[in-house]
Simulated scan of single mutants.
Amino acid sequence: MRSPFHLVENSPWPFLCSVSTVCVVVGLVDWMSDGSLGLLGFSGIQLGVVLYQWLRDVVRESNQGWHTSYVAKNLRLGMMLFIFSEIFFFFLFFSFFSCSLVPSVEVGGVWPPVGILPVNVFSLPLLMTAVLLGSGVSVTWCHHAMMAGHRDEAICGLSITILLGLYFTFLQVNEYMECSFTIADSVYGSLFYVMTGFHGIHVIVGTMMLLVSEFRLMSHDFSSERHLGLEVSIWYWHFVDVVWIFLYLCVYWWGGV
């Protein structure tokens, strides 16, 4: 008799994913400091390949029937705990409030620091906010359509969400290219690029998760009763949306006016 619980086999993908993620972060810092894209491009491709292999194994386990109701319940709980840990990860950047509420003499006693020209809150950041909020609407439409058994509508809503996620990433890259300051320009530049950069990485990961769900949806892997992969991807995307709203209000609005 098959156990309701599933013990996964030994896999190299978690370790390789961690190494690739660190390389991507280092590549981002290298790009922001010197404008070099070599390490970032290589590590990005490496991370994409690792995630593809890892998600392929998870999909294979699901198709083989290992994701029973007990396993699905634990997977949902695991995703909730993961998102909860990610929330606390962004809480680590409370140093932003310390620096902005009580600016030190090293930055001129004002916030933003002397010599820093902040990004116009009503330009690209406002458009990026509208894009992410629109993606939240479309992904919610996809979820409700999937639960109602309307597969074509779910595919349409998910496709719109993926396009908006890619567009957001494109806008963020343009914003970095147009910024008048770099990650090396005082504590403001460091916090700005680290906070928005880590959120950008989360957007890319969320887009990849939704893209995998799109392929599975088009391959009839999901039904109105069983669509766990799509469901947790939508949870993650809503988390990305909420985090960006706080970043927009704190970093761009409050920190730039």
Rank of each mutant, 00 (worst) to 15 (best):
F97Q: 02
G41P: 03
G78K: 06
I45F: 07
V107W: 05
I116A: 08
G78Y: 01
S62D: 10
L55M: 14
G108V: 04
R56W: 09
Q46D: 13
L117N: 13
L133G: 06
D57I: 07
Q46H: 06
A130T: 10
G38M: 14
V121Y: 05
Y52W: 14
L132Y: 00
I45S: 05
F42C: 15
L39V: 14
F84M: 13
L101R: 05
P113D: 07
S95H: 07
V131G: 01
G115R: 04
F90G: 00
G78S: 07
F82N: 03
F84H: 06
Q53T: 14
S123D: 12
L124A: 14
S62T: 14
G41H: 00
G65V: 03
F89N: 00
L132G: 02
F82G: 03
I87H: 00
W111V: 02
V49H: 06
L39T: 11
P103Q: 04
W54C: 00
N63F: 13
F88L: 10
P113Q: 11
W66V: 10
F90S: 05
S100I: 09
S85V: 11
N63C: 15
D57L: 15
Y52G: 13
F91Y: 10
Q53W: 08
P112S: 10
T68A: 09
S62G: 09
V50C: 12
L132R: 00
R76H: 13
S62H: 13
T68R: 00
Q46W: 14
L40A: 05
L40W: 03
V105N: 13
F94A: 07
Q64R: 13
L124S: 05
S43K: 03
P112Q: 10
M80W: 03
V71T: 09
G38Y: 07
I83K: 03
E86D: 04
S123W: 04
G78W: 05
I116W: 00
F93C: 01
G48S: 11
F97K: 06
G109H: 08
S98Q: 09
L133Y: 04
V50S: 04
L133K: 01
